[in-house]
Design a protein around this nucleic acid. Structure first.
Lengths: 125, 125
DNA sequence: CTAAACTCTCACGTCGGTGTGAGAGTCAAG
DNA sequence: CTTGACTCTCACACCGACGTGAGAGTTTAG
């Protein structure tokens, strides 16, 4: 499919898709005239990119990771290290967010008449 | 204390502190010559700002929140709504991060010889 | 009293992920 | 063949939380 269709099916802008390619996270084929051609599997790939972006990973890193996982690189060990580092960072972020949520609860408590159970503690807990 | 000392004691740059004031999150007094004067309690306030920033709240919002909690505004209900909205957003972010961490685990699994317990599942769980 | 250290207020630079044209080529339908 | 919808490649604009001087006044130590 061409870039417009991929944009429609993923909800990601055409501009963003071109940017992902620029960073090495997508590797579309090209028609003789230069049009990018994506396979259906790229839809999931784009979803992964979105997920990783939302988690705070930079596009440079995402590009390297996806390239590496595509077997484009022999630096598997290096790649694994980066992934594990990001995993740790995410876990830290989670802990930090949990802590911040408590702070917000404290702040809320100061503006509210005390007592009042707990409004569904995330999916974790 | 003057701004330099506050910077030293909080680990936040002088520039950032001025920026926090600009956004209404800090309200230092001024000497006749214009120097900002902070009280010791501002140290904790700065820590709170850092925490909220790290959680993804924007400075504009943080400024409003802290101003409101200082009793500067009568819009308590409005303020509470914002706080609760951010609380919900943070909970969403946490869930999202947990999901992303699973994705990373999947990716890691594809680069590793299978099996291998679990490396300390955050402080939650 | 002087020099060093600090502080003040502009105001422009940075970085990352996109938006937004500009100008030009390409493809499908009538 | 023409029109309109897509696509291409530059390349500048944007936002948010600062960094980084510039130029000028203030305070402190010797």
């Amino acid at each position: 499919m061409k870039i417009g269709e991929l944009a429609d099916r993923t909800g990601v802008s055409v501009r963003a898709l071109r940017y992902y390619e620029e960073k090495g996270a997508l590797r579309p084929d090209r028609t003789p005239s230069g049009y990018r051609i994506f396979s259906d599997s790229e839809i999931r790939r784009v979803a992964h990119i979105q997920t990783l972006l939302a988690a705070g990973l930079g596009m440079d890193l995402i590009g390297e990771i996806l390239a590496c996982l595509s077997g484009e690189s022999l630096l598997l060990d290096d790649c694994r290290e980066r992934l594990e580092a990001e995993r740790r960072r995410i876990t830290n972020d989670i802990d930090q967010l949990v802590h911040t949520r408590s702070l917000l609860d404290d702040l809320l408590a100061t503006t509210r008449a005390p007592a009042q159970p707990n409004p569904v503690e995330s999916s974790i807990a």
